[in-house]
Amino acid sequence: MSRRRKAEKREVLADPKYKSVLVTQFVNNVTRQGKKRLAEGLFYDAIEIVNQRTGQDGITVFKKAVDNVKPVLEVKSRRVGGANYQVPIEVKSERRVSLAIRWLINYARSRSEKSMAEKLANEFIQASKNEGGAVRKKVDTHKMAEANKAFAHFRF
């Protein structure tokens, strides 16, 4: 952590098609090796697949998926008197969104479908129904925080 001034948050521009900052954040996280156009294409294809499979608006399914994956609590290691404790803390709103996006992408990448667009679409659909790997990760994180509730007084 810097002892000087706090790092400034960069302004993220809304995505041109859906006018959503959340979509831009997601696309930026999917981007690899500077290929943002490819990542945008993957995301838009995934939204189209969601439209076809569910009959619902793809963006609303995506937003619901992100909301369902957002964690409320997480654990952080805290060293107290020579012992490490897993201390449960509340997650700030910006970190909630970034964790949800990261988990959705990671679990989509580990799926077995053919294309990345299909993987993303299926992860969105499952997460919007409170199923899938990303939601399981959130539940596991909450269970860890619940199990270590006894150490909450070490919060910093």
Rank of each mutant, 00 (worst) to 15 (best):
A152R: 10
R10H: 11
N28R: 14
A127H: 07
T54A: 00
A145V: 02
R136H: 01
R3D: 09
A83G: 01
L99N: 06
E94W: 10
K129D: 13
M116D: 09
D45E: 12
K70N: 12
K76W: 07
F62L: 14
A46W: 03
P88V: 05
K138L: 10
K119W: 03
S2M: 04
K6N: 06
V135Y: 09
E11N: 13
N84S: 13
R79W: 05
A145D: 05
K64T: 15
E90L: 13
R5I: 13
K36Q: 14
V87G: 07
S128L: 08
D140S: 12
F43S: 01
A65P: 02
M144W: 04
D67F: 03
V91A: 08
H153S: 10
D15G: 08
Y85S: 03
V91F: 08
G133D: 11
R10L: 07
A150D: 08
G82A: 11
L38N: 08
V87S: 06
H142K: 05
L13W: 09
I89L: 08
A65V: 06
N148D: 03
E8Q: 11
N106Q: 15
P88D: 13
S98E: 14
A134P: 03
L104K: 05
N122F: 09
K137H: 13
E48S: 10
E48W: 05
A117F: 06
A14L: 07
A121C: 04
E8W: 04
N84L: 08
G133F: 10
R10I: 09
I49E: 01
R37S: 13
P16E: 12
R111G: 12
K63H: 06
R4S: 09
E11A: 04
F154Q: 01
K138N: 14
N29I: 00
A147R: 14
A147V: 04
K64R: 15
G58I: 02
H153F: 14
A83Y: 09
I59Q: 08
A39L: 10
I59S: 01
V50M: 04
G132Y: 07
V97L: 15
E94D: 15
S98R: 13
Q52E: 09
Q56L: 04
A7S: 06
V97T: 15
K149P: 02
N28I: 08
S110W: 11
Q52W: 01
A147Q: 13
V21P: 05
Q33I: 05
S20I: 13
A46R: 07
F124Q: 02
V75F: 02
K119F: 04
K19I: 10
S77Q: 09
N106Y: 08
S93H: 12
E74D: 10
N68M: 03
R5L: 10
N122E: 07
E131S: 05
Y107H: 13
I47H: 00
G34V: 00
Y18H: 15
A14Y: 09
A83D: 06
P16Q: 08
P88S: 04
A39D: 12
L22V: 15
A150K: 14
E48H: 06
G132V: 00
L22R: 15
A134I: 14
V72T: 15
Q86W: 02
V75S: 11
E113I: 00
E146G: 03
N51C: 00
D45L: 07
K114G: 09
Q33A: 11
E131R: 13
R4M: 03
R136K: 14
F124H: 04
S77M: 05
M116G: 02
E94I: 06
K138V: 10
V12H: 09
H153Y: 15
H142C: 01
R5S: 08
K19Y: 08
